[in-house]
Design a protein around this nucleic acid. Structure first.
Lengths: 114, 114
DNA sequence: CCGAATCCAGTAGGATACTG
DNA sequence: CAGTATCCTACTGGATTCGG
């Protein structure tokens, strides 16, 4: 596992999840274990190449576990590690803020009707 | 102000702060109003062009206010709007996580000494 | 001092085809 | 199904120069 540390704690966090895709992957895996295909479908628009590379990176960083099942057709499952799960408060904060923002914007848009 | 909204609240948040630089700008401005030069120095390694473009984007999104002083030499100050300040919980969560991670990694590194 | 304009390199990320 | 390999495009961001 790579250790990424800089002086500022916020920057340290950014070194691990500075990326839109990584946040999306976290969002999905916080719900529980998912297969590669499920993950890709859930995120919506992401190529296999990009999804794979980000999952590998998160694996190296100790955020994600990868389990391969020797079956036909093959099955690969991704699960958050304890460290990965510990990022939940950040995702929750983002979810809360996004929810409030959406409501605020919706109200603003509806105002003119009055 | 642009209204950026998608179905998922987390993604909505990402539309506004999907970027390393924007998070860094937020971190600095949560401390209070700063001049362009102060901001640039505090962030460390960022070109004027990139800093400017991100500040403009955040202005359009209603996160940042820009105040120009007609002086010589010119002075431009950036301040978070109420909306910008409302992102503080997310930054706090990132700071908390980063702090814990740094401590964890430090302990791991020191273990072999024993 | 703030920042706009231009040029340029590196890279993120999509499309496609192929494999175990 | 879950990737890998290759090719290609578009954007990010730095460096530099110039202006108010």
């Amino acid at each position: 596992m790579r250790n990424k540390v800089v002086a500022c704690p916020v920057e340290t966090t950014l070194l691990l999840i500075n990326d839109r895709w990584k946040v999306m992957i976290l969002r999905e895996l916080l719900d529980g274990t998912k297969r590669f295909g499920e993950l890709r479908k859930a995120i919506g628009t992401v190529s296999a190449k990009v999804l794979t590379s980000h999952l590998r990176s998160m694996e190296e960083d100790g955020l994600v576990d990868r389990e391969i099942f020797a079956e036909v057709p093959p099955r690969v499952e991704y699960t958050l590690t304890e460290l990965g799960n510990s990022l939940k408060p950040i995702l929750d904060a983002m979810k809360d803020w996004g929810t409030n923002y959406q409501e605020m914007v919706t109200v603003e848009v509806e105002q003119p009707k009055v």
